[in-house]
Design a protein around this nucleic acid. Structure first.
Lengths: 217, 217
DNA sequence: GTCTATAGCTAGATAGAC
DNA sequence: GTCTATCTAGCTATAGAC
């Protein structure tokens, strides 16, 4: 907040990054003014242009940088071998931990895709597809080995990612559950979802799916 | 798009509502200008103020109206009696159908909470809690009867809602799956998640949850 | 209810001194 | 690298004629 006297490149750059993450996560990219951002950092608005060419480039740098980090960290965490069960467990634990550690970046990566210009959006979407594919591969493998019983692995991929990514919309440090606790609970739910089955033994599943639409419009 | 000559209150009102939904869902509330909105409707920007007092009130009306519809439709769809299994199935089918029918409203209700002023936000959050509680009650009931095996029903509530609500981020009419197909697939996944268990019989679950954090920072 | 016109303000971006 | 000053454009909201 306080003004930093003199020239201090790298420190200012990092301060801008952090303030930008916070402001965009809180108010959204379009609602964040560069004057706000500069004030948060403790510099004048014009000085920001020593760190990016325009506001859009700033957003893209934030998102792209995060996606690169995410991919690198995932690759380091994933198991090359092992049962689909073990691999899905590892994926889930990684994903949960990452969302708990960096909720702002993750949230922005989902919520501000709409604010990216077409070329920038295309680049990010491609990276996101790669990430989805890594989960999709695990699910496909599990279905092939019979470990998982999934009606549709593509839908399961989207469902699991949405379920896990939802964490960053409500997680606050210091809450009821620790990272370990969250990992355990979410791993349990994801595995149960993937293993599916066990259904027939419990009850006859009601299959009537009548026209709920009628109650909606 | 085309200019509608003369006075036409109710038609204009509905046109504004629809255009607003589309623009906010696509570009976001802060990024949508009232000039854009007026152009989409085919009137002049100043004329919008015959339909709301200011931009914030417009957003709040959209979100609040949708939440009221959602609650009414849910109450009509839910089962008062029956097994937790049947009730959860019904809830899921309803939720999926609603999201497929009105993806824009639903998306805005999640993504534009940040754009609501404090009082308006509080009102919407309260309505959202009611909705969550209806799902939470089903899960609690299922756990009490032994139908469901959930480590944490609050987390399960959030997980299921995130999973289902994610639909509105990728669903497009005319896609691979029909509403019925989506209902069946998601009902299967939600029930599997809620029933949990069946785990011990499949494989020894790897419990190591080592410091993945190290690979993140 | 719609129009035209405009007030009053804030936005992103640039220029040039230090 | 930071500052001050400013340009141009866009925004929300209002006033008053029809």
């Amino acid at each position: 907040m306080a003004r930093i006297a003199g020239s201090s490149g790298p420190r200012t750059e990092e301060a801008i990054r952090r303030a930008g993450l916070r402001l965009i996560a809180t108010h959204g990219y379009a609602a964040m003014s560069l004057r706000q951002l500069a004030a948060e950092v403790g510099i004048q608005q014009g000085s920001l242009y020593n760190y990016f060419r325009n506001k859009q480039e700033f957003l893209f740098d934030l998102i792209r940088g995060h996606m690169l980090d995410l991919h690198a960290a995932l690759d380091a965490a994933l198991l090359a071998e092992g049962s689909a069960d073990a691999r899905l467990t590892r994926f889930t634990e990684f994903h949960v931990a990452y969302h708990v550690e960096r909720p702002q970046e993750v949230f922005i990566c989902y919520s501000e895709l709409r604010s990216l210009e077409p070329d920038n959006l295309a680049a990010v979407v491609a990276m996101r597809r790669d990430y989805e594919r890594k989960l999709g591969d695990i699910l496909d493998h599990g279905r092939a080995t019979g470990e998982f019983r999934l009606a549709d692995t593509r839908m399961a991929t989207l469902a699991i990612l949405a379920m896990l990514s939802g964490i960053c919309t409500w997680y606050k440090p210091g809450g009821r559950l620790s990272t370990d606790g969250l990992q355990e609970i979410f791993t349990g739910m994801v595995l149960a979802l993937a293993r599916g089955g066990a259904t027939e033994t419990v009850a006859v599943r009601p299959r009537r799916r009548e026209a709920l639409r009628a109650g909606i419009g």
